[in-house]
Amino acid sequence: MKTALVTGVSTKVGLGYAIAEALGKQDYHVIISARKLEQAETIARELNSQGLSISAIRIDLLDRKSIAEAASQVNKKHPVLDVLVNNAALMLDGSATTLEKDLDEFNIEFQTNVTGTWSVTQEFYKMLVASGHGRIVNVSSGAGSFTDPDFGLVHFPGAALKLLDPYPLTPYAITKLALNGLTIKMSKDFKADNILVNAVCPGFTATRAGSADFGARPVSESVKGIVWAATLPDDGPNGGFFRDGAPLPW
């Protein structure tokens, strides 16, 4: 049985739950993490009741000690990790304008979405190498693209998000821009160990109450592209940016 780690699985309505469920149905043992262990354990019990193989650990992306401890725990039971899905992310609801944004708040977002993801990858890297065909999926966003027609920095808000106009470009987008750059760096650094690293935009997804009213699509649709990137063959793409398996502009 192959093994996957999916970060940021704390509720049934999020992408993390759907990713874990989909990989579990493909006969992976899936380790799920959340900032609060009891949340991940509740989700694990729910998925195990469906006949899937799921276990839970605690990872707080703002707490590097928790990441190191989680890696140590996993290594004892699952020294080989085939897939790492860096799904955990944070977008705070404070002001989004350049002049009004609380920079302490932004630092929390950046440390979660970029530095935390980097730290998780460092701690679990040896287990991915042991697989011989490791896959890393960084769940990103078209908001981190320059020229994506709907979400990108240049065109935001595009036609798909016209109801949000004149909402300002979010600082969250800046964190995803950095994550996309980190994806390229990882893909180059890890190529010699046969680890494929790609960024995936799940699209505008209904993970928040009311978002479907603004055109967000069901989680069941968005998860497909993430699972595709997590299960690529050895000759699959590396260092790319995708949505639904199709390339996106950086």
Score class of each variant (00 low, 15 high):
V200K: 04
A178P: 02
G24C: 04
S55Y: 05
S95C: 10
G215D: 13
T97L: 14
V227D: 06
G51K: 08
R45W: 06
E41H: 07
R45I: 09
I195F: 03
S72G: 13
F110H: 09
A56F: 03
S220R: 08
I195D: 03
D213S: 15
F151A: 12
G144K: 05
L37H: 14
P202E: 06
W118M: 07
E38F: 10
S141W: 03
T97P: 07
A40G: 14
D82V: 06
A143M: 15
M186S: 01
A40Q: 13
F106W: 15
V85R: 07
L103P: 06
K25H: 08
A44D: 01
A4S: 04
T42N: 14
I57Q: 15
R208D: 12
K188M: 14
P249E: 13
T170C: 00
G94Y: 11
S10K: 11
I31S: 03
A4R: 00
Y125T: 08
E221D: 15
V80G: 00
A159C: 01
E69D: 15
A212Y: 09
I54F: 11
R45H: 14
L196P: 00
E123K: 09
T170M: 10
E69L: 09
T115Q: 12
C201D: 15
S211E: 10
L90D: 07
L103G: 04
F241I: 07
F146D: 12
M127H: 11
G210H: 08
D93E: 13
K162N: 12
G239M: 04
L47Y: 02
P171A: 12
D244W: 01
N48P: 00
Q122Y: 07
K65H: 02
L103M: 15
I32W: 00
D165I: 05
V197K: 01
H78S: 06
K36E: 05
L5C: 12
T11F: 00
D60P: 04
E100P: 08
G132I: 05
D244C: 03
G132W: 05
F106L: 14
V139R: 00
K224W: 01
G236M: 07
N194I: 08
L161N: 06
F214P: 00
S187A: 11
T3W: 08
V13D: 14
S49R: 14
F204K: 08
D165K: 15
A20W: 04
F146A: 13
G134K: 10
K25M: 06
L169K: 14
Y167S: 12
V227A: 05
G152Y: 06
G14M: 01
T183E: 01
A246R: 13
V200G: 09
A199W: 04
D189P: 03
P237F: 08
V9T: 11
A88F: 11
I31G: 04
A4F: 05
V80R: 10
G94Q: 14
V30C: 04
P166D: 14
A40R: 07
Y28M: 02
T3G: 08
M186T: 01
L248S: 04
P237K: 09
A229C: 09
M186W: 15
F124G: 00
V137E: 00
G236K: 09
I59T: 11
G24I: 02
L15Y: 09
K162M: 10
A230V: 01
T147G: 00
S66W: 05
G225E: 09
M1I: 15
